[in-house]
């Protein structure tokens, strides 16, 4: 491979890397030598890096992450357990679809975060309130994506199974579930984003620990580098999880061209 070949093959990677390095370097240089930085409003990469190191070595960060993860995992898991079967039933039984569709669609389209204050007031500041919010936000992508997946099942394949004498259980296990899997995983990807909003808002609103709280607290005490650390960590987690889901989608369903509107 020639030098040119090496670069053009991974063009996107190189340009992206270059872009980020350039920005970070420019940011640091401008704020060190050209414009004096008011520590109450701005900060620079070197300070952020120092704060990063400090936090990683300390205990507080890990504790906050654990607390936030706990609430998120609880809420998300219940969303999976409730959402996927609901979507399956809606997809398979016409009457259920007719009854639930308008109601659930209206809820899906609404900013359910608006219920956050109510949930916190009712359930208090602990794990349960936050998990409830995460659940409310992340259940709908599962319901609707599973539903769409079931409805898109190739009728021909259903006939194939029937022609070999398969029963309802065979239909579910051998055709409907595998066919719906890519949709479910796409739903998981959407649900993660929405669930993260839930945990963040919940922790902004009323919490004494957790990564969202850490960010607001850093903001209140004008510790900008620590704030940025929190934002960057959360961003990395969000991107990591989302990319993981995308990879999973591709592995499970290589035969589907992915041109979905995000």
């Amino acid at each position: 491979m020639t030098a040119k070949g090496f670069f053009t093959e991974r063009r996107r990677l190189w340009l992206g890397l270059f872009s980020v390095c350039f920005l970070v370097a420019a940011w640091e240089l401008v704020l060190t030598y050209i414009v004096p930085v008011n520590p109450f409003f701005f900060t620079k990469p070197s300070l952020i890096a120092a704060a990063f190191k400090e936090q990683l070595q300390g205990a507080r960060l890990w504790h906050d992450l654990a607390v936030s993860s706990q609430a998120f995992i609880w809420g998300f898991s219940v969303a999976v357990i409730v959402g996927i079967p609901a979507g399956l039933v809606m997809g398979w039984r016409r009457r259920v679809e007719y009854s639930l569709d308008p109601f659930l669609t209206a809820l899906y389209a609404s900013p359910l975060v608006a219920l956050a204050p109510l949930l916190i007031i009712v359930f208090g500041v602990g794990v349960f309130g936050k998990a409830a919010l995460v659940f409310l936000l992340s259940v709908f992508p599962f319901v609707f994506n599973t539903f769409a997946g079931v409805k898109s099942t190739d009728l021909l394949l259903i006939n194939v199974i029937r022609s070999f004498g398969g029963n309802e259980k065979d239909l579910y296990l051998k055709v409907i579930l595998p066919s719906t899997m890519p949709y479910i995983i796409a739903g998981a990807r959407l649900a993660i984003g929405r669930g993260l909003v839930g945990i963040i808002v919940g922790e902004f609103y009323a919490a004494s620990e957790g990564i969202g709280f850490a960010i607001t607290q850093a903001g209140d005490t004008y510790r900008l580098p620590d704030m940025f650390v929190g934002i960057i960590i959360l961003s990395l987690i969000a991107v990591g999880l989302t990319e993981l889901m995308r990879k999973l989608e591709l592995t499970v369903a290589p035969w589907r061209a992915n041109d979905e509107v995000r």
Binding site: L156, N159, V160, V175, P178, V252
Partner: peptide
Amino acid sequence: GQERAMVFQEFGLLPW
């Protein structure tokens, strides 16, 4: 029934 089997125009293969 098992004594009859069909070959379909659009193949009907399970893509996974």
